[in-house]
Amino acid sequence: MSAVEKQGEYQPEIVVLYCRNCLTPGIDPPSGVLAAGGIVAKYVPMPCSSKVEPSHLMKILERGADGVEVVGCPDGQCGFLDGNRRADKRVTRLRSLLAEIKLGEERLCMNRGTRLTSEALFALAQKRARAVAGLGPNPMKGVNR
């Protein structure tokens, strides 16, 4: 049972896949689940945002996440040359597919950041939650479990 179902009241579940290099050096990379402020944020740290595969992103949504936030380094600051740009292009294509199937392109988005704190990362999750608020819960919630 997910945190969402336990509380019995809809709290948007946002999966945040972020590049560790976006964080303020020295801080503990957030991981696991953080339920706060009416949302449930699930953190997935990655060595580079380019690690996101289209199939993974689609599976996360298929499993009921209400929004997926990919966080990468600013342009020109990728430790692997242009992993962030490649991730961005994949996200752009998938957003148009999400629009095509009427699930809502806002369920997936990529943002850039540098020297981010845990709070800043959570703020991005909240921003994604606001963006999907109008779409309502992901219809896949509770299906195929």
Partner: peptide, 16 residues
């Protein structure tokens, strides 16, 4: 890779 991407997309599209 495309099978793995299309399958969840199709499931979501059918569900919507």
């Amino acid at each position: 890779r495309e099978v793995e991407t299309l399958a969840p997309l199709l499931r979501m599209a059918l569900k919507t």
